[in-house]
Amino acid sequence: GVLPHKKAPGDNQVVSLLLLAEPEAILAMADPTVPDSDIKALTTLCDLADRELVVNIGWAKHIPGFPSLSLADQMSLLQSGWMEILILRVVFRSLALDERLAYAEDYVMDHDQSKMAGLLDLNNAILQLVKKYKSVSLDREEFVLLKAIALVNSDSAPHEDSEAVQHLQDVLQGALQDYEAARHAQDPRRAGKLIMSLPLLRQTAARAVQHFCGIKRDGRVPMHKLFLELLEAK
């Protein structure tokens, strides 16, 4: 008899597609002619966030199954999940660092810089996530899966086609389960552990949105339109 085709361990098509879709790193390019201040730091971060959002919307369109959702459902997921995506990217870039956050390769914030920008509490909350993922040695495959799962799980409001959204959630969660079964078979609870980190991500993202809404109301930091549009969506 002919044996059915057996996939190699870890041969996970969803993971491969997500790894391929991963955006290139973006540089913050803080203006070297402007002296350091809270306004300069926040202006740099808001500009970086706007450019990150553009590439992350492009990225979302490469999540297998996402473009098949209705436009309204794609929009509502991004309107709820965008900050979780931005924060998870900062967290993953910061895993190799000690008590510092890599907002970009050329923009790493330490305690003093966070304090100057008025971001100490928020950055400390993000560092909690870094600590959590460091403790499990989160790998790149898990990072891309978690990011996609965070997005498709981000909206609790009714969807136009809730079955399609549920199906996408199932596909991505299944891909994480399969990946863990193949790559981390010694820890059968690893997928669950990673999923259980998502409430802290959501809580931190809500805090970040609240903080930047305050900065927006304050009106001293220029913000680009997409960033403003998504802050307003919250």
Binding site: D50, K61, M75, L78, M223, K225, L226, E229, A233
Partner: peptide
Amino acid sequence: TERHKILHRLLQDSNDSPTPA
């Protein structure tokens, strides 16, 4: 959709230039 026109546009095309200030 009217309130979220940039997101709407970006989802519909593959434009990845920065958004206007």
